[in-house]
């Protein structure tokens, strides 16, 4: 569904990605791992259009999107849940979710999807009138994912959902992510530092180091690989 080919990207004079290529097959969960500063978030930004690559191509469902603006890419069926959630802090939970569906016009579909989100994250339903900035970390992450789902995307980009969250909450969220993929057939590209959790739900993994893909394999092989175990899984 998503194919990134030899993408280079820079922030002004600072080069961040040096020829990154990866593929995300439809219906799967693919994870992008790597240490801090490797360029994982940059990769997602390039896909969703927040950053334009200096060279290389990005194809979504066969169509080139590397020069498109993020507003246009969203309407193609891709949703980006950014690093640090980036919620609308002074709006309520409900308002955040509504904005997630901004590009859609089908009232009934939106209502259905909102109920679906509340089904995945019941606590959001309880707190729907609460201002987003006052939610706990875990609740905010749930809201961010829910908001991303409201666009009814076929591809969901998740940037470090585990960041700053307690282990129990993280596990809960990852299970929900897995079921989103299985039940609704949403393809997921998951950027994570928490390699073991990510590999547990993904089918394929890429390891990014200083802007280059260092490893690319099925997640089972990655979990067994010596290199990954030492560097990222801690044993």
């Amino acid at each position: 569904m998503l194919r990134i080919t030899d993408v280079h990207a820079a922030y002004g004079p600072i080069l961040a990605l040096h020829g990154v290529s990866l593929e995300v097959p439809a219906g799967s969960i693919v994870t992008l791992l790597g240490p801090n500063g490797a360029g994982k978030t940059t990769t997602l930004r390039v896909v969703s259009g927040l950053l334009h690559p200096s060279s290389g191509t990005i194809e979504f469902e066969g169509r080139r999107i590397d020069r498109m603006a993020p507003e246009a890419i969203v309407s193609l069926g891709m949703s980006h849940v950014p690093e640090n959630r980036q919620l609308f802090a002074e709006l309520t939970v409900l308002e955040n979710l509504r904005l997630g569906a901004y590009i859609r016009r089908d009232r009934n579909g939106i209502k259905q999807d909102m109920e679906q989100v509340f089904h995945y994250f019941p606590i959001l339903h309880d707190r729907q009138k609460q201002v987003a900035g006052t939610l706990s970390g875990g609740e905010q992450q749930m809201l961010a994912i829910g908001r991303g789902l409201m666009a009814r995307p076929r591809l969901l980009l998740l940037d470090e959902p585990s960041m700053g969250l307690a282990p129990l909450v993280t596990r809960e969220i990852f299970e929900i992510v897995k079921s989103i993929n299985q039940k609704q057939k949403v393809t997921i590209l998951l950027v994570e530092q928490n390699a073991s959790l990510a590999l547990a739900i993904a089918e394929r993994g890429y390891v990014l180091e200083t802007g280059r893909i260092a490893l690319s394999d099925t997640s089972a092989n990655l979990q067994r690989s010596e290199a990954v175990r030492r560097s990222y899984l801690g044993y």
Binding site: P70, V74, P82, Q86
Partner: peptide, 8 residues
């Protein structure tokens, strides 16, 4: 930034 990601 978030607004752009919503398609606004």
């Amino acid at each position: 930034v978030a607004a752009r990601l919503m398609g606004i």
